[in-house]
Nucleic acid binder design. Structure first.
Lengths: 132, 132
DNA sequence: TTACTTGTACTAGTATCGTAGTACAACTAC
DNA sequence: GTAGTTGTACTACGATACTAGTACAAGTAA
């Protein structure tokens, strides 16, 4: 673990949320592999100039989500269970919930699902273009 | 204006947000027509059992968004400008911003735009099915 | 002008959130 | 066992968010 997550205290998003997001993203993109150990709460707290409890809360939350596994006296690790097949359903459910919120919000602004689909599709085209 | 917006104080979403959403939705779905007058801040405050200032804040915010127009001593009305052509761009921009946030959030959970598109498309099918 | 309506500014109280400090508990290694 | 590591529980402080109370300002109508 040479690289470190970066937080901006001035950003409106709270530190714990920034860190949660950073860790989730690191795992989702493979920067953090299955079984890999994360820095200890104190280590990371010092490096991010943050209280140890803030890091601990994040680790605990991610453990409840099944993404991390913590062992006292040892450390915190990227969970293997999370990537097991029986967790796929739950993952899908989370996406469904996210989409729910999104559709509702867009609806309150007067947009239909089709409007949203158009936006997303044009965005996808740009993305794939960039990555070619 | 016979029907009234409904708020639930026990809901985690703050009252002002609930009201904002309700009004936006009413306008977006045509329940509130262009030029139509909304209840006065005091009237609505009494009916919703809420402080007048809470309603006023919502009206003020929606006015800043160009959705409402207020005239002292007269009342608050659904703005006509909002539906003028030159506001379409801004509306589109809001959708784009919403989609931005959404894609980012989904990305942090490890979902690609394609995953999201799949979800939305299957949802659209269900919607159209229901409405037939 | 005067009475009455409307929205608004200012202030304050309460609750909640985010973070930090400190002390504690579980575990490992020797 | 003891020392040293790890995560955790409890508490408290500061900041912010939300709502309400009160007094005010701008406009209308007679």
């Amino acid at each position: 673990m040479a690289e470190i997550f970066s937080l901006s205290p001035s950003h409106p998003m709270p530190l714990y949320a920034q860190l949660t997001r950073a860790i989730r993203f690191a795992i989702a993109t493979g920067k953090l592999g299955v079984g890999e150990q994360l820095p200890t709460v104190r280590q990371l707290a010092v490096e991010l100039r943050v209280n140890a409890n803030t890091v601990a809360k994040v680790y605990a939350e991610l453990e409840r989500s099944g993404i991390l596994e913590t062992r006292r006296g040892v450390g915190t690790f990227v969970s293997a269970r999370h990537f097991a097949a029986h967790h796929r359903d739950e993952h899908e459910k989370h996406l469904a919930e996210l989409v729910d919120r999104f559709v509702e919000e867009a609806g309150a602004m007067g947009f239909s699902i089709d409007d949203v689909l158009d936006q997303l599709q044009s965005r996808r085209k740009k993305e794939t273009k960039k990555n070619v």
